[in-house]
Design a protein around this nucleic acid. Structure first.
Length: 542
RNA sequence: GUCCCCAUCGUCUAGAGGCCUAGGACACCCGCCUUUCACGCAGGUAACACGAGUUCGAAUCUCGUUGGGGACGCCA
């Protein structure tokens, strides 16, 4: 950045100067300037991710610009570290902004708390024009007002008490040091405000349902309503992409553009993702932060694909497509106007495709990075069945990480084994954990008994497997020998196979038996099976 | 209480007056493959919220009802 924009803003004395500070952008015709504008009040949410995908796609599609702006105007709710988490989240998702906070650009600063003077000038301008007024009502009075209105089954709305103050009264009360806010003066009742939403079409509101909203707070910070208009205008944003919850305040924003005499951008309100209860995804629906999905083993390209899949239908009915394809084919009017329910099964299906599309060495590296990530954030994936709960302790993850690092070649074999078994990186623990010492759990006597209730026979069978099969050269020989053992004991082949599987892995569900026997090797196999023999029947006999 | 948005299989949707005895995908069920699981392959169950109207003809247009969601802060 060649100029210190923060300093320049502080020096501004009029809105006209601001117009000169931020000249029209030099972009190709049709280029969309879009922004994602999260407030740093917590970990980045899935809704922010959804908007960023649309933003990124729109900017890519039109050779436009995607901006990150941080809306930190609520000083009380600002959470330390949230900004970094937002940036990290967007980078992880692959919807990296072109411009904005920490990305640079000529239309900054991109942190609203660095732009306070601009909002003040804007508010003064509106007051001077008669479109806004100072309000000295105390929070207590307002609360009482709302309470009374609620009791009377009326819509809570400011009663415009201070709009009747004379200029002299205002000057006098300010001089006395009374704390005040600036409110917008909505037009007289009965006027219609229309605007076009890019996905819903024309929407009309009556001004009588619109409140004289606060524009500038008592602490000199702007509210969302003022800040968003001023910033979108001076950042030369062409399309406002934001959540559906903003539709009802959009008329206020349209009115503000009119009051300023500025050209309004296009409006695109995205649907809100719902949980199984059809409510908007929130804390109660589980961890819906970006980091939460990462912790649970979802891939960024999987999340990206899932997010677009539930709010857009591919013209060829495809489920799997990348961001570039989405950007190329999407049109705002094709976006849905009903909030989709986040179907985790569909998410798993899509994510699994991406997982399986990687080569073993890539998968191994992704898994290692995943483990490192878990350690770095000190979190573990949760089981997605009814009971939930962590599926593996952090200590185990650290050991597994070391074990993989010590023998990457072996690990690559593990990841070459039916990668389509995994839908999420965290599924590797359940599907392949037994192939590593860190995550191997020996078979219980009960599990053994399930496949061969006669403990003595089980011991005999497994003893023979250890004695006769492990030195054999290949799967074919194993197969033949194991079937012979079954015949000798008068049991079905399956009994021998399952007993061996359970004894060697501690699991009933595994990749093909001979493949994992080859991988485990003779030493480990005989050790595990012998341990199982020693353990067999212990709790059943007792 | 008021306003705004929305309404096709369990879920995401296709559908812009006749191509719809409503198509696809996920999920589910069944079969094949098979020593388990997964993959794959072959089938199946399953929806136009309701009521009027417009029309020769309505999932598609209009109105109403019902249902769902969102908003109404010196929060965003």
């Amino acid at each position: 950045m060649t100029v210190d924009l923060k300093a320049r803003i502080a020096e501004l004395t009029s809105l006209e100067q601001a117009e000169q500070l931020y000249p029209a952008r030099n972009l190709p015709a049709g280029a969309e300037v879009v922004r994602v504008a999260p407030s740093p009040t917590g970990m980045p949410h899935i809704g922010t991710a959804m908007q960023s995908v649309i933003d990124r796609a729109l900017a890519d599609k039109t050779n436009g610009v995607f901006i990150l702006r941080i809306e930190d105007t609520d000083t009380a709710r600002t959470v330390p570290g949230a900004v970094d988490a937002i940036i990290a989240g967007l980078k992880w998702l692959g919807t990296t902004p072109d411009e904005g906070y920490s990305f640079g650009g000529d239309y900054g600063p991109y942190l609203q708390s660095d732009r306070l003077n601009l909002y003040k000038l804007a508010a003064d301008h509106l007051v001077a024009k008669g479109h806004a007024y100072a309000c000295f009502c105390t929070p207590e009075r307002l609360e009482k007002l709302r309470e009374d209105q609620s009791k009377a089954k009326m819509m809570p709305k400011y009663d415009r008490l201070c709009s009747k103050l004379t200029a002299e009264e205002v000057t006098e009360r300010k001089a006395k040091g009374e704390r005040f806010v600036i409110r917008m003066r909505m037009p007289k009742d009965g006027e219609k405000i229309r605007f076009k939403d890019e996905v819903r079409g024309e929407i009309e509101f009556d001004t009588k349902v619109l409140d004289d909203s606060v524009l500038l707070k008592g602490d000199g910070f702007p509210t969302y309503h003022l800040a968003v208009i001023v910033d979108d205008h001076f950042m030369r944003v062409t399309t406002v992409v934001r959540g559906e919850e903003w539709v009802s305040s959009a008329p206020k924003h349209v009115m503000l553009y009119k009051m300023f005499g500025w050209e309004a951008p296009k409006w695109l309100h995205t649907v809100l993702l719902r949980d199984a209860e059809r409510r908007k995804l929130s804390k109660r629906s589980g961890d819906t932060s970006l980091a939460g999905y990462r912790v649970n083993g979802y891939l960024p390209e999987g999340l990206r694909n899932f997010l677009t899949r539930v709010m857009w239908a591919h013209p060829e009915n495809k489920d799997i497509y990348d961001l570039a394809e989405f950007a190329r084919l999407v049109t705002p009017s094709a976006l849905p106007s009903t909030g989709p329910i986040a179907d985790m099964k569909l998410f798993g299906f899509i994510n699994g495709h991406y997982l399986a599309s990687h080569k073993p060495a890539e998968l191994r590296q992704m898994f290692v990075d995943y483990l490192d990530y878990l350690v770095s954030v000190d979190r573990v994936p949760e089981s997605d069945d009814e009971e939930g709960g962590p599926i593996v302790p952090l200590e185990t993850i650290k050991k597994l990480r070391a074990e993989i690092a010590a023998n990457t070649e072996y690990a690559d074999h593990v990841f070459a084994l039916e990668p389509e078994r995994h839908q999420k990186l965290s599924d590797v623990f359940r599907n392949c954990g037994f192939l590593f010492e860190a995550t191997y759990t020996p078979a219980t006597a009960e599990l053994m008994a399930k496949h061969c209730p006669d403990a003595a026979m089980a011991k005999g069978i497994l003893g023979k497997v250890v004695a006769e099969c492990l030195d054999m050269p290949d799967s074919e020989a194993w197969d033949k020998a194991m079937r012979q053992i079954a015949a000798d004991n008068g049991v079905k082949d399956k009994v021998v196979f399952m007993l061996t599987r359970v004894a060697a892995t501690g699991m009933e569900r595994t990749p093909p038996l001979f493949e994992i026997m080859h991988m485990l090797g003779k030493a480990k196999l005989s050790q595990r099976i012998n341990a199982a023999i020693a353990n067999a029947g212990t709790s059943v006999a007792a």
